[in-house]
Amino acid sequence: MSLSRLFLGKRGEEPPDNDFDPSLVQRSGWAHTLYVIRRDVLAMFSVLWIAAMLISAIAAPLLAPYPEQGAGRNNVDDRLLPPSTQYLLGTDELGRDVLSRLIYGARPAMSSSLVVVAVAVLIGTPLGAIAGYFGGWVDEIIMRFTDLFLAFPSLLLAMAIVALLGPSLMNAVIALVASWWPWYTRLVRSTTRSLREQYFVEAARSIGVSDAMIIWRHILPNTITPILVQSTIDIGTVILATTSLAFIGLGTQAPNADWGLMIEGARQFLRQAWWYSIFPGAAIFLTVLAFNLLGDTLRDIFDPRQYR
């Protein structure tokens, strides 16, 4: 409790030091997480929206009113129709149902972002743990190498790589992984450095446990929480990046559905067909927002100051 705050008469926030046993109040991990999410309307919305997007991506052929159009078949007779009972969200310049395209567009958005973050975590985490645990010259080498990647703006680096490998969703994913993993190295390194000073790590060393086993058993399990929070927020950012790459023609290629690609196509028809640009824009906006909100909520839940 900061003293000036107390003396200036504001309410202290920290609970009394040693006066009651937190384990009495604390539910088990998952029950607590669910409790907090249920209490928080925005977090609840985020979880529902993300679930809806995931289901759309998995079950797109079942959910889309016009699966063939969602997958790319033209329907030029009905081009640029406004929303109606037949086409709930209108149609695009090739007469395809926008709703079906959006549902199919969830596939590259969700799958590429999940893959990018997962691979980035898999590369970044071990490097960060090794750098943080051993320190010294090992740390020096690994971190200078990551600095090299971090020095480039990530989207620019991704564009350069895609330009080199040729435009496709697969290459966009590779490019984004290349610019994303260093952040996890940094995150895990700093977490590891503080964990290394903890008594339970020293206790393991005093027993004679080898360094590799200490990292595996005692360090990595404790980095999961910050990684989970960070990667949740990152999924949103990666969706933004993949759709941006698609928008400038370096990601998903037509006739496959992609939110970024849809906005690119809608650009010429902004005045005639507002629905064509608004709905994919809203899909990107809401999905990125949902992942950010969920990440913030997870951070609140796992924050050691509250989750004692």
């Binding site: 008594y199 339970f200 020293e202 206790a203 004679g208 005692h218 404790n222």
Partner: peptide
């Protein structure tokens, strides 16, 4: 050699809550 020797000399720390791995 040192790791094997550690079986014969052990330590107990001040704060038992932080000297046991929280997730084990």
């Amino acid at each position: 050699t040192l790791r094997r020797k550690r079986a014969h000399m052990q330590i107990v720390f001040q704060n038992p809550l932080v000297s046991l791995s929280p997730r084990r």
